[in-house]
Design a protein around this nucleic acid. Sequence first.
DNA 1: ATATAGTGTGTATTTTTTACACTAAGTAAT
DNA 2: ATTACTTAGTGTAAAAAATACACACTATAT
Lengths: 229, 229
Amino acid sequence: MKEVLPVFNSAVSIDCVLFGFDNGELKILLIERNEEPFKDWWALPGNLVGENESVDQSASRILHELTGLSDIYMEQYFTFGEVDRHPQGRVITVAYYAMLRLGGDKALKPLTTYAKKAQWINVKELPKLGFDHQHIFDKGLEKIKRRIKHLPIAFELLPEKFTLTQVQNVYELILGKKLDKRNFRKKILSFGVLKELDEKQKGVSFRAATLYKFDKRKYAKLFGKEISF
Amino acid sequence: MKEVLPVFNSAVSIDCVLFGFDNGELKILLIERNEEPFKDWWALPGNLVGENESVDQSASRILHELTGLSDIYMEQYFTFGEVDRHPQGRVITVAYYAMLRLGGDKALKPLTTYAKKAQWINVKELPKLGFDHQHIFDKGLEKIKRRIKHLPIAFELLPEKFTLTQVQNVYELILGKKLDKRNFRKKILSFGVLKELDEKQKGVSFRAATLYKFDKRKYAKLFGKEISF
DNA sequence: ATATAGTGTGTATTTTTTACACTAAGTAAT
DNA sequence: ATTACTTAGTGTAAAAAATACACACTATAT
């Protein structure tokens, strides 16, 4: 039943902007390429879409291959289709972002056979990127700036238990500006998706903050209603 | 320099959701297919991306071929990449929407060689669509619902000169709900992108409304600032 | 005990959103 | 000319949301 259409107009790939929050810094995962084109350049992790997987499945597979993680909130945000974006031929790429929890329980295990190495790099200190990846990144950052105002994606960056100050840090890093502490706490709590725990921060040499966790149940109830910052 | 990559993983196409406003109704352009698969079904207009055009260029070309129009605000909103969405092979499709001015100066001239006919159809009376086009349409409608709250795309649907009531009609049709007249007018004028003309509606058998036009200059000044409904 | 560093809290003001109903103007019919 | 009809056009009060702003608390380290 399924005949291949008699056309070759482009290959299709996935590129991922994987955000992580570590040490008070917003980072993304980059690879250092080991092959032409752009050998020795930094680039976003990505790969070709397989013939028997949807683009969403492909994105999940690629994320898994790169990090060992599954079940991550990952979302398509734009498709880049300039003719000359890949020097070796026509490749249209579908871009996704994901927010990852770093340094937590189990470390990430990138299987980067096609790269010298993979590394988490502060978004404020990005190196020059190959292809049109700077552009893809810029557009991804812009996208999540909008989305964290409405969707609870920021919590994906944080450990299971976190303080309100940590949440505020994430918002400030992504939005690129300072927020007022009292107003921020009022607002973030008013969404009703956080649960206060009967537990405090440990190992700090000052007053310990209350821990919270993201409450998926409450979120499910609100889903559909717009929440916004 | 440019070698074709040795992969064939998918063909890439464009599908367009072309919105029009006519006779107080929100419509989209559909074609009736003349070839298998889905012969005799209605479908969104679309086509394969050419090898030497970007996806944006491709979308403009396809829009032009279908309507004779150029210089239309057209925007990519999602890429659909399910494996089995096309029964004859792997085709990933990039969806665009555009807002068109109907019934105005010059009529649209669809060159629909690959279809029996093209027709503007009320979005409230959509027929069964081929492929996953109902899904593509649904997602497109959802997208413009959000976007008309922030971007002045609704004016693209209206003639050059229009009344505030017409604008409100468009908003109500897209959002699918009634809006309060006074509040709507306050808000739409507060954006400062409309210019009141020294001219009234003609040919109506009741009090003639003041005409307005969209003022691109004023919009350019505001661009960057968020405007929202 | 005291210095330090981050936690946690309330109120007043401004802005935005919402709810709500009547008069004005033009046309058509008599 | 009067009347009926239909849409245009307008303001205000109340509620809700956003903003601006400063100090006392608490745990630890010395």
